[in-house]
């Protein structure tokens, strides 16, 4: 799927549905991406998505799941920095799904 239509605007995506241009991202796009992943965004989801965007801003990479889990634990507390919590929010993988919603590329080191 090369393009998606959100609120009357067209956005370029890659063959796996990830946003091609980071700068295209906005909350409408995020909600659309979430919908395609069967996820209803809550404050908890946004917290992770925003964390990912900040991480990318700082390091220019989307972190691997293991790294994301550890980093979230450091920043948001141990009750959130674990797989159960993150997979509870993003059942098909916090790396894959949350990155897509955050408008980031697929995580480096995602295997």
């Amino acid at each position: 799927m090369p393009n998606i239509e959100v609120a009357g605007k067209s956005y370029e995506t890659d063959e796996e549905g990830y946003l091609v241009n980071l700068s295209d991202w906005n909350t409408d796009v995020a909600n659309y991406m979430a919908q395609t992943e069967n996820i209803t965004m809550t404050d908890q989801h946004w917290e992770v998505v925003n964390f990912l965007r900040e991480y990318f801003e700082e390091y220019q990479i989307a972190p691997a799941v293991r790294v994301l889990t550890k980093a979230i634990g450091k920043k948001l507390g141990a009750e959130k920095g674990n797989s159960e919590y993150l997979y509870g929010l993003f059942p098909y993988g916090p790396g894959k799904q949350a990155c897509k919603i955050a408008g980031l590329p697929k995580p480096t080191g995602c295997i």
Binding site: Q60, I61, V67, A71, G109
Partner: peptide
């Protein structure tokens, strides 16, 4: 071109 040098700072997380 993408500046990838900030990623070296993330190596610690890895």
């Amino acid at each position: 071109t993408k500046n990838f040098s900030p990623a070296y700072r993330a190596l610690e997380d890895y």
